[in-house]
Design a protein around this nucleic acid. Sequence first.
RNA 1: GGCCCGUUCGUCUAGAGGCCUAGGAUACAUGGUUCUCAUCCAUGCGACACGGGUUCAAAUCCCGUACGGGCUACCA
Length: 518
Amino acid sequence: MSAPVTPRLRFAPSPTGPLHIGGARTAIYNWAAARALGGRFLLRIEDTDQARSTKASLENILESFRWLGLDWDEGPEHGGDFGPYFQSERLDIYARYGARLLASGHAYECFCTSEEVEAGREALKAAGRSPMYDRRCRDLSDAQREELRGSGRVASLRFRMPLDEDLTVHDLGKGQVVVNLREVDDWVMVRAGGMPLYNFACVVDDLEMGITHVVRGEEHFVNGVKQLVMFRALGQPAPQYAHIPLILGKDGKKLSKRDASTAVLDYRDHGYSADAVFNYIALLGWSFSGDQDLFTRDEMVARFAIPDIGKSGAKFDEEKLQWMAGEYVRRAAIDDLVAWTKPFVLAAGAVPESAYASHPDLLRNLVRCNQERIRLFPELPPKLGYYFTDPEPDDAARKNLAKFPDAPQWLAAYAELLGDSAIPPSYPKDRGDADRVAVLPTDRNASLPDRSAVPFLLPAHLEEDARALADRLGIKFGNLVHPLRAALTGTDKGPGLFDIVYLLGRERCLARLSASSR
RNA sequence: GGCCCGUUCGUCUAGAGGCCUAGGAUACAUGGUUCUCAUCCAUGCGACACGGGUUCAAAUCCCGUACGGGCUACCA
């Protein structure tokens, strides 16, 4: 009996651009599979294309991982026993494998130039056959090789694929697929310059790093075939591959920038909850259960299995992502939500920065009062501005103010009522315990607390008093509330009006009322 | 062109021969709650691509067609 093998999975991006949604989904599935299997998850950087690899892309990928909550056990910044984890630092290892495959006859030197290979392809195409390398260097004699070398040509290394074989591939994503190997090129393993290419380096690393499962996009299916054959040539077992469909845009084609932001961090910058983005991406091609769309990372790990990944392409639907972002906002712990929205609030200048430190409970209440009214973080600042700056009434507010000629008198009456009431002072004054005593928004189903038990009248008391005032004035409650809201907030929508009065405080309310009833 | 894969409400999906007059979510519509908006609740709208088989029975199995996607680099 052989020893149990620790499952090891990897995500192996090339740092040639920001991490995009599709890559993130692949990463999530590999991560979840590693965790579900009780294995290890590693990050390997495939930077053999020196011309296109950048440091900024690497940083972007790592930051995307951190933001999404994907932790890796081995790789950049974490080390590990199977390093180095940058392919550019593993060149000697590739050289060793290249020599070995050359010696065993599984690889051969090719002296063709790119132009010659391309010309050969064109010729085949013209003859109605599949365009591929014509294999003219496959069976060169030693003498011929020396002659080519002597003429100044530099060899690349090609893999000698079987010429005629039906290979049965067992793919965790696609099931059993029979591939005619004659359809597959003698692919280049090492460039003429000596740099290894993807398929070659990938096999060496997956082997050396003990990778057991690989989940990746189906654009890699044929690569998988090449890699399988190379593992066989090495006499080593290949990982289990799962090739999964791509994420599509609205037009049904591979997701592109035309459809939506494709970079993961754009969603961070646009104020989406990271948990929501993780959850939504995970759902693109995998389902938690028949009737539950929202789940945590731990819940996903508890249920995830590679064969359950869907077989057909999923379209990226930004509307559902937004709904999900809203769900996560509504479920968020208040201190998290305050922290997440803070950069957006400050950037918009909606709240003085010092207020976060001097009036934390006021901030909590302000955010809580809007928690069910926003989906993305940038939606919050416009709803907070009027607590700190006198608003300019919008059209709807103006209309509510002008609807009844008597409204100014009603507002004056309300101002008088407020003037005689015990309500908290306005920011930046010290509001004492006001924002701790009242945890807003007010629960309409809660019973009315005793007035003598609290230092200030609570919103529920204020409402009770306002209803009494409306009765005295002989008007409907709504006729008082609508102009009042307009005068106080400059708009016709928002949290419960008496929560607003409470949060606005005495000075601001009275000032705005006197301005409006003039 | 060749090779490979896929096809359930607009979208994401559940469904692994009878539990399906196909379930959930989103979106949309209507109604309810409320001082507004939002939330929430209720209801509605809406799909097994098509054609043949196999079977007592098919969304589920097989074949074909159509449509869609991927690959076809000295990129990954």
